[in-house]
């Protein structure tokens, strides 16, 4: 069983839902990333999604774009992201880490090399935003050969056939993008999301995470009522941005921890 599967199995046993926070590796600099990851776990994160910065983050809104730019300006790279995961693993052998990024840095490293190195570093799953299932056969195989889970997105516009296709190569969990748009966009229609879930569950037995547009404990609670996991990204990046704006990073971990703990309380309002 992979770390991700174990995590969902454990939560299932406890009647709880997963909280998956997202941060961008190297934002605002590499030294803060591992402490932030530990802070996320202390605040109640079950899985960490770690963004791999890319020069052209086409699917991201302004908040995550700025995080990528800050990280790249300080020299972050895929190679260094893997080093950060290795460092995180020296103190945490339990919390799954999922990398989220774009195809080009991975292809530049080489799919096989990347899969080997990521597995060695302690990465558990990888979500490549611009690898739809049609273009991801080799990627899926390379991940699975190294015991990692390829994670895929499902959108409000995904047809039943496409969801079925995705379910065939995905493992770990699937990530339902709760609105048409980029990360960090506004209003989330919880009812519409709830209505889509049965269609997804017909096609796959994998846990379903829901993200994009979840900004507070109340929304997290409403999503956790029917999803298996709640993903929160831009709101946390905003907190990091605000906490480090004056160049002093010392309060960032405490502020992020407080924010995520609050969202955790929302998620835990729902017990199965």
């Amino acid at each position: 069983m992979s770390r991700i599967q174990k995590t969902f199995a454990r939560l299932n046993g406890e009647g709880r839902k997963a909280l998956i926070p997202f941060i961008t590796a190297g934002d605002p600099d590499a030294d803060l990333t591992v402490p932030l990851m530990h802070a996320l776990v202390e605040a109640g994160a079950d899985i960490i999604e770690l963004g791999v910065p890319f020069s052209d983050p086409m699917a991201d809104g302004p908040t995550i774009q700025r995080a990528s730019e800050r990280a790249l300006a300080k020299g972050m790279s895929l190679r260094k992201v893997l080093q950060l995961v290795t460092r995180f693993r020296t103190e945490d052998d339990k919390t799954p880490v999922v990398l989220m990024g774009y195809a080009n840095p991975i292809e530049a490293m080489g799919l096989t090399t990347f899969a080997e190195k990521a597995a060695q570093s302690g990465v558990d799953g990888v979500l490549v935003v611009d690898y739809p299932p049609e273009e991801a056969e080799k990627f899926g195989a390379a991940m699975k050969a190294q015991g990692m889970d390829p994670i895929f997105l499902i959108a409000p516009t995904s047809s039943a056939e496409r969801i079925a296709h995705t379910a065939k190569i995905a493992s770990g969990y699937v990530y339902y993008v709760s609105l048409a748009g980029v990360t960090g966009s506004g209003a989330l229609n919880v009812e519409a999301v709830a209505q889509k879930l049965p269609l997804i569950r017909e096609q796959t037995g994998l846990p379903v995470g829901v993200g994009f547009g979840i900004r507070d404990a109340a929304t997290a609670a409403r999503i956790a009522a029917f999803a298996d996991a709640v993903v929160v990204g831009s709101r946390i990046i905003e907190e990091i941005e605000k906490s480090t704006a004056n160049g002093d990073n010392s309060s960032a971990c405490a502020n992020v921890k407080a924010l995520v703990a609050e969202i955790r309380r929302g998620v835990d309002e729902v017990k199965k």
Binding site: A59, P132, E134, S158, R162, V177
Partner: peptide, 12 residues
């Protein structure tokens, strides 16, 4: 070539 976009663009 191909279609290397996020799932959200597939419908369009």
């Amino acid at each position: 070539g191909g279609v290397f976009v996020a799932e959200t663009l597939f419908g369009a």
